[in-house]
Amino acid sequence: MSEQPIGYWVKLVDSLITERFQDALEEHGVTRRQWMLLNHLRNGTASGGELTEALSPFFGDPVPDGEPRTPSEHLAELVESGWVLEEGHTFTLTERGALSLERLTEIVEGIRTSASENVAPADFETTVATLRTMAGNLGYREGQAAPAQ
């Protein structure tokens, strides 16, 4: 196998993680973006605007055909499913949603564990630190939203 530049490996790993998350979550009737919304609501009630702002980097990414492209469309599906309660312009995780999120979190953690299997913890930390430094070298500042693709 020929040597590939770092961008090749970063994009490949990102696409493989995205694909694995998408497949696993879809088996449970949830999109990755819905999982992100549920996960954000784990911290408490949030307005639609707060959810949009918090997750805006992820809604700029390309999405599979037919998947809603805005947080409001994903939220409407979560409200309809009984996982999220809408009161006025605020959203809260229901008990049913919290239980579902707990199970989904186990699945996501399993994928993360699988992705880093056979990677020494020190190597993993070095990789993350290196990527963080490279992002800074390219203009990223801590707390800044990741650019949409």
Rank of each mutant, 00 (worst) to 15 (best):
L78M: 05
G88F: 05
L51K: 04
L131R: 07
V30Q: 15
G66T: 08
V128E: 07
E109Q: 15
L51V: 10
L104V: 11
A76M: 05
L25S: 01
T94W: 06
H40D: 09
P57A: 05
N43S: 13
V30W: 02
E53K: 07
G60M: 06
G82Q: 05
V84A: 06
E86M: 14
E86H: 05
R69D: 12
D14Q: 08
E26N: 08
L138T: 02
E102Y: 11
A76Q: 13
G139H: 01
E125P: 00
A76G: 02
A115C: 10
G139Q: 03
V79D: 06
A24P: 07
E95I: 14
T18W: 08
V119R: 07
T18H: 08
H28M: 12
T113D: 12
D123Y: 03
V79F: 02
P62T: 09
S100M: 12
S81D: 13
F91Q: 06
S47Q: 09
Y140P: 00
P71H: 04
A146C: 11
E27Q: 08
I17W: 08
S100I: 05
S56D: 14
R141I: 13
E117T: 13
L104T: 04
G44F: 03
A120D: 13
G143W: 05
S56L: 10
P71M: 01
L131D: 04
T113V: 06
L85D: 15
A129D: 15
L78W: 05
N39W: 10
E53S: 09
T130K: 02
R141L: 12
L55T: 12
N43F: 12
G49K: 14
G44W: 03
T113K: 03
L51M: 10
D123T: 09
G60H: 07
S47M: 01
R42E: 10
A146K: 07
R141F: 06
R96L: 11
D123R: 11
E50F: 11
E125L: 11
R141N: 14
G97E: 13
D65S: 15
L78H: 03
E142P: 02
V79Y: 03
L99A: 13
T70P: 01
D61I: 00
V63Y: 07
V128I: 10
F21P: 02
L85A: 11
A145I: 02
E67S: 09
V79S: 00
P71A: 04
A120G: 10
V108H: 03
S116F: 06
R33T: 04
E80T: 13
P64W: 00
R42N: 08
E53C: 01
V79M: 00
Q22V: 00
L101I: 00
A135T: 03
L78D: 02
E87Y: 06
N137C: 13
R32Y: 08
N137H: 09
